[in-house]
Design a binder for these strands. Structure first.
Lengths: 221, 221
DNA sequence: TCGATTATCGTCAGAATGACGAGAAAAGGA
DNA sequence: TCCTTTTCTCGTCATTCTGACGATAATCGA
């Protein structure tokens, strides 16, 4: 039996919330094709490597992070003939949601790496579309999963969690109704008993993520 | 630059509702590996073919269907090294939801094809897991999208739509509350003005799918 | 001490939900 | 023809959820 030959890459849509706005991790390409253009981080899948393993490896290379912090899930695959001038390349895109981190470290074959506010266009390959799909997935999943906590550090306030929703959905949310909803939805967040100190305003109780995998009922956008 | 070489296939999780139960389209393999074993329909992606095009082609080959009926979406990619004894094969799985059809036609390299109630195990490759992921995706999407209509013919009754939910979720639903919910959720279904004839019981109004892409508020499981 | 700021708790009307009653409109058999 | 069965469709009602907003609590910085 004969069949066409492909190369397989993983690309990452790494999202975080910085300064109240959704940001994506971009790298400036250090080799052809699209030399010098901004792109999603990614690379070829190794010979005996699982797809998820490859995604986690790339994530570690780009962010210096390897712990189980944040969230990583498969986003989808993109295989248009002609999407890569080097030949037939299928990419498996992954979506990562991370708490705000120190500045990224430029990886091996990237000239630079930075957090960019989402909305920038003109990325290499079909990365504009992959990014748009990733953002849409994130927006959608905040509704019916507790994934917003993936954008937060291990301990966080309800106000910080609300900030995530406001940044991802792009609009203000009533603090009082949000507080009620977040604290009464079973399994969403659990109080740790500690509180913030030294912040402006009244001290806020600290919470950690709960055990739920789905929000019931969902947050309404 | 050198990188590993892959083959890429598409596999289909084709679901339908028959006799009040969720069924999946399976084929009996007519060639190695896993000769004679039941598997999800699928095949290699052609040299200059898009992934979605390949999925639609395979769907047409297996069901004889090529129209826009039903629903087709990408489910996810599976690329464990060793998932295929022939070498490094990544498969892109698609999920198709179709109205009940006449018996399937066995495709080119399939010995047989049939609708099997979901739950059967022991499929070839990693198809048990892909099938489970597809069923879970379908269950989940019925909640917050109008996708249940993809299981129905162009015109259907509220009772038939309820039958889809009962089959996919596996439990009885109160007909009166469901009727209210389906007919008042904006964009879910629209009356065609016609009614059923010759069925037992009171004639039912016929509906077609509405324009909504998401149900607001969602159906509760 | 005095705002400014943020967190947290309450209230209240309107909407949505779940449980169920009741009638409408057909088919099929006695 | 009349009755039974079946399924659809419309209502009712108590409970819960939601959105809008008032009020108070607890800190910081001037």
């Amino acid at each position: 039996m004969s069949y066409p030959v492909f190369a397989v890459t993983v690309d990452l849509v790494v999202l975080t919330v910085r300064d109240g706005a959704l940001h994506v991790l971009l790298v400036q390409r250090g080799c052809e094709p699209y030399l010098g253009r901004w792109a999603l981080p990614g690379g070829f899948v190794h010979a005996d490597e699982d797809l998820t393993t490859a995604a986690r490896r790339e994530l570690g290379e780009e962010t210096g992070l390897d712990g189980p912090a944040g969230h990583l899930e498969q986003l989808g695959s993109y295989g248009d003939p002609g999407r890569d001038p080097r030949g037939r390349v299928v990419t498996v895109a992954y979506l990562a949601l991370l708490p705000d981190l120190p500045s990224p470290t430029a990886g091996t074959d990237a000239a630079a790496a930075e957090w960019a506010p989402i909305g920038r266009r003109g990325l290499a390959f079909d990365h504009d579309r992959i990014l748009a799909d990733g953002v849409e997935r994130a927006r959608s999943k905040l509704e019916y999963t507790p994934l917003a906590t993936a954008f937060c550090p291990p301990e966080f306030t309800i106000g910080a969690l609300r900030g995530v929703y406001e940044a991802v959905w792009g609009g203000p949310i009533d603090p009082r109704n949000f507080h009620r909803k977040a604290t009464t939805t079973p399994g969403f967040v659990e109080p740790t008993g500690r509180s913030t100190e030294g912040e402006p305003g009244r001290p806020a109780r600290l919470y950690q993520r709960g055990e739920a995998t789905r929000l019931n009922p969902p947050m309404s956008r």
